[in-house]
Amino acid sequence: MTEFVQQFVDGLGRGGIYALLALGLALIFGVMHLVNFAHGETITVPAYVAFGISLAVGGNWWLIVPAVIVAAVLVSVATEFVAFRWVRGSSDFTMLLTSFGVHFVVVAVFVMAVSPKAKNFEKPGWIFNTVRVGGVSFEIVDLVTIGVTLATLVLTVSILRKTLFGIAIRAAAEDFDAARLMGVRSNRVIRSAFALAGFLAGVAAVFWLMRTGEAEPGAGLVPLLKGVIAAIIGGLGSLTGAVLGGFALGLAEVYLRAWLPGNLAGLTEGAVFLLIALLFIVRPQGFVTVRRAERV
């Protein structure tokens, strides 16, 4: 039972990161029907920012955290400006490969500018400390991740619900053409969606980087894939679904790791991907269905 609770908190902690990424992906998908495989760059670039800061002034996380978030927002907006703006309305095939193109270029830039090898920076000292609550010990990093994730999600929900900008995004996610006809400015909405997605990814990046403490050219790929998977599990385009998908994926990973026998533990990632393939085979539309009837 103790173990179960520990794993549950561990899973929520991981899942929170995925949920933040998935929510951003779902926002972007909503406004331009793009599955953004370059969304992981909002982790890769901040990773190098964190590395740069710790190189220059040492691992001061009071400095790193805001820098990482700002970098993530800038990266997200920049990718829209440089690449996605020009393929708006193209086929899904074209947009998907465009985002892969962005990913590959960013990887190559860091290979050239820094190194193909991973660069380490100092993790905050406290993160693997544990607190004991009623006989169960929790890692602080998980508790902080869960707390901040929830706060961020609440903030995002209130932005989407209350502000004009949020309403415009939600309207655009529902029906982009109709929203445009109602006077929603497409450029601004898309840019805002990328900015908000970048912010969410920035928060996710903070916790991801606290755990890994390294910057490498492909740093964003694995969290990105998890985010994409979570978003699709949640039924692409559904914002609630994306968040639930993220937490579900985090929990599934943790319990799978615990459940697989020791000599197969190395295959956890492989098993996760296998499960994901099966999931998409059985339920390609995800678990929160978004009605997206094709007009004929």
Partner: peptide
């Protein structure tokens, strides 16, 4: 089964998952 058609994202994800499954097994077996 996933209803693959041109540009279908679920189909692309299945193929991507396949790539990773093979890679992970190759590394860890």
């Amino acid at each position: 089964r996933s209803g693959a058609k041109s540009g279908a994202i679920a189909a692309t994800m299945i193929t991507l998952a396949l790539l990773f499954v093979v890679y992970e097994v190759a590394r860890n077996y």
